[in-house]
Amino acid sequence: MKENILDVDNLHVSFKTRNGEITAVKGVSFSLKKGETLAIVGESGSGKSVTAKSIMRLLPKHSAVIPQGEIKFEGQDLLELSLKDMQQVRGSKISMVFQDPMTSLNPTMKIGKQIMEGLKKHQTLTKSEARQRALEMLELVGIPNAKKRLDAYPHQFSGGMRQRVVIAMALACIPQVLIADEPTTALDVTIQAQILQLMKNLQEKMDTAIVLITHDLGVVANMADKVAVMYAGEVVEYGTLDEIFYETQHPYTLGLLGSMPNLNAKRSEPLIPIPGSPPDLATLGTGCPFAARCPYTMAVCHDYHPRKTELSESHSVLCWLQDSRTPENHAPETVGSAQR
């Protein structure tokens, strides 16, 4: 059995603001093995990207605080590394693909030079060897006429091709973990499918573990082995793909699944959105942060925060409905065959 390559345990992240310290990530825990894909899903503002940037140590120094938690990569806590040591990890062992490739690429530098930069920093390659490796990576991610495109600038590529270039940069040093922060959001569905298939193919070749951040459950169904559902900075449900889709236990996860288009439904059937909006993290009360939007809410939900309930070795949920202290079982029916 493979050992965990990445372990995030009880991670808390806060930001200093004029109105005081706001907790953006609260008690997040998950693990990842080589070759696995973990999808982190949730609405905007749920803490997905902050969690990813915490792993990469890319949070703003002057405002971000990590008061507790561990991020262990191959047994080493990344939060204890010096900046110099962390720079050796970024790009070579853990890489990240950001949502908008134009924010990741330098518009004044040729594509080949940008890929070579990371190779020369992390590997003992000559300039010609680094250029050859950059060429191989462009060919690997499906860039046509790759030799000529090495000397092109980012604005000379389409959105989908720029995303392929960013993936080539991230995988150039063959990292063990790839973090993809909504890598297909800005792309049309045809290009999106190509990028996702590319990531799956590269994962099989390199045995890379992937942390995929997305709000698209269709992408999750095609890519993930495990799923962490985040809401208001917390992982409210965590489990395998089948457990999250077919044995759903948290009302928020049910809401996300219920708002997906169903290809088997009649045209007249409307989508069912989750009512309300995500809470303001600066004004969270003591109860469950989803209580105001939950159709199954109880009196205890408004006053006391739920504790984690372990449903199986791989499946856990943060909800009063499954808590053993709840006198009556009010749990909603699981999605089951309705999602099949």
Rank of each mutant, 00 (worst) to 15 (best):
T190K: 04
S158H: 13
V189Q: 00
A193T: 07
D181S: 08
A152R: 06
A172N: 07
G160F: 10
I191Q: 01
L178K: 01
A186Q: 07
S158G: 12
R164A: 11
L171F: 04
E182I: 12
L196H: 00
T190S: 15
I167S: 02
A168M: 03
Y153E: 10
Q194I: 13
A193F: 01
Q156E: 15
A152G: 05
K147H: 11
K148T: 14
I195N: 07
L150M: 14
L171E: 06
Q163S: 13
A193V: 09
S158C: 14
R162N: 11
T190G: 06
F157S: 11
K148R: 14
Q163W: 09
M161N: 06
L196P: 01
D188A: 05
D188E: 03
I191W: 00
E182F: 10
P175W: 09
R149C: 07
L171S: 07
A193S: 13
A180C: 15
Q176T: 09
Q156D: 02
G159W: 01
Q192N: 04
R149F: 02
P183I: 12
I179T: 00
R162P: 08
R149L: 06
D181C: 06
I179Q: 00
Q156M: 15
A146F: 02
A170V: 12
C173S: 06
T184R: 03
A146M: 08
T184C: 14
R162H: 07
A168F: 05
R162V: 10
A180I: 14
K148E: 15
G142M: 08
P175M: 14
Q194Y: 10
E182G: 12
V189N: 00
A186I: 07
I174E: 15
L178H: 03
R149H: 10
